[in-house]
Every structure is written in structure tokens, then in C-alpha cells.
Design a protein around this nucleic acid. Structure first.
Lengths: 215, 215
DNA sequence: GCGGGCATCCACCAATCGGGGGATGCCCGA
DNA sequence: TCGGGCATCCCCCGATTGGTGGATGCCCGC
């Protein structure tokens, strides 16, 4: 961990790798950071798979990671990087979408920060330095999402299974048949699901569960 | 890379305006084009509204236009630009999404080209020159998508709205009340949604729509 | 040993949903 | 001009759901 002392200009530059399948976005980020003395782009990648190689060879301090990419998405790339080393590099997710599902999956995989692509330059640069110095960096809207999540109770395995089948369009009877339980039992499980998710019916329950990455 | 020093290109540089709400993307595009002698960025905008002003003052040859932006989306901006002048500037849509609906709306509004943000530099530059010289420019994937549109029917605006409310757990009657239409009409819309998505009921429809990003 | 969470089961009833018809008016493209 | 897509409305009916109020057995922690 670096020391945040009073001699700022002398500090080492933060070495980063940029991972995004959009050339335009990569160029934008690289252009922005090369104009900054405090941050150096030491590598780039266009997919999760490339990212793993690039990080292995470049050993950056921070990785800027997109989530939705062909050939190895961001989530699994984050998981694998974390499996190699629990603290290095720090991983900043930079994505277009802010769905609860994505946020949850990314942070669960081991991301240290979560920003949206409409973030301003200053926010981005600040976030990179925050991560390099050991702090987390999360967009304001994302925090509110996390707060909602913590307040929400988790579904049991059985409840989640029932909900998954309901999301496939099966009737309660069909679900019961599939799981070898009675229709009445299915209804009971769903009642519990509705109560836990605050959903009035199965359609809303499906949506909420999908948003939260519970399915 | 190719067109630059090609034959008849003694021509003037192509003057373009970049419209995108993501600062990162704007920078990437501007950085790319300022490195090219044959293309000059004469303006930029972060919303549809700004785009209208910027085009009026800069009179560019080509506009690079994002679709989903706050404060005036790309579709209406394209329509208004076309209402002013049917041929100038040429409009190249550059977006992250390749949904059938977006493509149709953009082209119907009067766009001359449609590229995705994962396009390579050379494709982008070529497309700008194509447009400046009066040719259309459409990404290969977009064409393929237009071809398979029968396989994946899009929801109408009304249908999508009804489904959204159903996903919030509203009953058909409540949806009708909210949209100021009859409950019977709501049922009809949902019937169409089920048919289009191949869903047996609303729960499945919600899940499928969520998966496909139709909501 | 006793509570408590979990999974399982049951019955009853009102409300809702899905499926089958058919109907109108509008607008746009062939 | 004639479809065809879209949005709107109406009917009826059986199947399904959601709400309520129970019940049993199991396992775990206190």
C-alpha cells in the first residue's frame, strides 16, 4: 500500500491496464491517462481472456474492466484475477449499465470499484488513485443499490429453485411435479418469496430476483 | 490508413461533430480523428439538444451521433436535423446497442449509417469518408440483424410499457388504470407480448424481456 | 429440552389470469 | 385501393393464482 504523504508530485505513477472491447472507449481512456503524469497505461485488452494475459505480463496496480465483452466477460475475468492474488491488481469496473445484478456480480467476483461510463474525467482519475491507495471507489447511485440489497433477506435454495421455474413460465402444479413436491408446497414457497422480496406476485418477484442476481 | 493517401483525396478534410453523453467516448473519438489529417472535429455535444445547436453553428459534413442520451435522445435529434435539411449533414449513428428497434428508428429518422462502438478504427474512419462522399455505411452485424428480424420480433412501445408495469406486480386492471386504457386492452397487449416472446405467462415474459434487454 | 428456521403438506375462497372468440378506427406502405 | 400493423374495446369461461389459516417432521443452536 502506498503512502499518501505530503510530497505529491514525487509519488510514483499508477500503472494501469485498460480492458474494454470498444476500441473507441479504450482510446478515450488511454488518451485521457497518457495526458496525466500520475497514471501510466501499461497495457490494454479487448476481452476477458486477453485481460488475464495482459495483467500477468504487465503486473499493473489497477485494472479498468468492462463487464460485457465477447470471449470472456468481465465477471469471470475478475474472479480469475482474484483467484491469483487477493489484493493485486485492484480492479475498477467501468461499465455502461448500472443494474443491481451487474453490480452485485462484479463486487462478489472481487471488484474494488464500480463506475459508470458517463463518469467525468475527474471522477475517473480520482477513482484510479483511490484504488491504488487502497480505498474503494463506487459511484453514488451504486451505493444506494447496495444498501437496498443488504436490507433484503436471502432466499433459501428451495425458494430460489421454485422461483426459477416460475420464471420459466411453469404453473405451480408443473413446478411441484418437476421438484417432486405438492402444488400446495410450491405455493407456500412462493408466498415466502413474495414476503422476502416485497413482491405482490410472481411477475414482480421474477423481476426483482433478476435485478438482484438471485436467479 | 487506406483512404487517406488514396487517389482523388486532394479534397478538403471532412468536418465532423461528435455527439455522445459519455466523456470517455467523446475523447476517444476526438483523439482518433485529430490524429488524422483527412478528418477534422469541429464540434462536440453531450446531448441531442446540444447537438442541434452545435450543428447549426458548425455546419459539419458528418455528425457522429449516439442514440441513448439524457436531455434529447439521438432519434429526435436526427429527425430534427433531417427536418432542417434532407441531405446535410450526413448522420452516422454510433451506438453500443444493436437492437432491431434502435436500428429501425434511427434509419427511419434519417440516419445515413449505423455502426457499433466496437467497430475498429479503420471501419469508423472509412464510414465517415463513405458518408461524406454520399455512400451509406452500415455495420455487417447490423445487416445480419435486419435479416433475422423475423426470428426476434420487437415489442411495440405500448406492449413494452404494459409489460414493464406487469413486471412491477400491477394487475391488469391497475395497469389499465395507470395507462388510462381498459383492462381488456391490457390483456390484448399482453397476449401479443406472450406470442412475440414465446412466453406462456407474464412471469416468463418478464424474465425473457429482461434477458433480452427489451425493458 | 425448547424454540426457530426450513421443507413439506392440506383446504377453502375470492380475485385474477389466460384463451377463445370478435370488433372498431387509424395510419402507412404496397 | 387494399391490406396490415397498431391500439383500443367487448364478451365468456375455465384454470390458475394469491390469501389465509392451519399442520407435521427435521435439524440446529441455546
Amino acid at each position: 500500500m502506498l503512502i499518501d504523504d505530503a510530497a505529491p508530485a514525487a509519488a510514483e505513477t499508477v500503472r494501469i491496464v485498460v480492458v474494454d472491447d470498444h476500441p473507441v472507449v479504450r482510446d478515450g481512456l488511454i488518451g485521457m491517462f497518457t495526458a496525466m503524469s500520475s497514471i501510466t497505461v501499461v497495457g490494454q485488452a479487448a476481452s476477458g481472456r486477453e485481460a488475464l494475459e495482459m495483467v500477468a505480463t504487465c503486473d499493473p496496480d489497477v485494472v479498468l474492466m468492462d463487464l460485457r465483452m465477447p470471449d470472456g466477460d468481465g465477471f469471470s475475468a475478475i474472479s480469475r484475477l482474484r483467484a491469483r492474488n487477493r489484493t493485486r491488481p485492484r480492479i475498477l469496473v467501468l461499465t455502461t449499465y448500472d443494474t443491481e445484478r451487474d453490480v452485485h456480480r462484479a463486487l462478489a467476483a472481487g471488484a474494488d470499484g464500480f463506475l459508470l461510463k458517463d463518469a467525468r474525467h475527474t471522477e475517473l482519475i480520482r477513482a484510479v488513485h483511490d484504488l491504488a491507495e487502497g480505498r474503494a471507489a463506487v459511484a453514488p447511485g451504486v451505493l444506494a443499490m447496495l444498501a437496498r440489497r443488504d436490507a433484503a433477506p436471502a432466499l433459501t435454495e428451495r425458494e430460489a429453485n421454485v422461483l426459477r421455474l416460475a420464471a420459466d413460465g411453469l404453473t405451480n402444479r408443473a413446478i411441484g411435479h418437476r421438484l417432486a413436491i405438492g402444488e400446495a408446497t410450491v405455493k407456500t414457497h412462493l408466498q415466502h418469496v413474495y414476503a422476502k422480496l416485497g413482491a405482490p406476485d410472481r411477475a414482480a418477484a421474477v423481476r426483482i430476483a433478476w435485478e438482484r442476481g438471485l436467479v
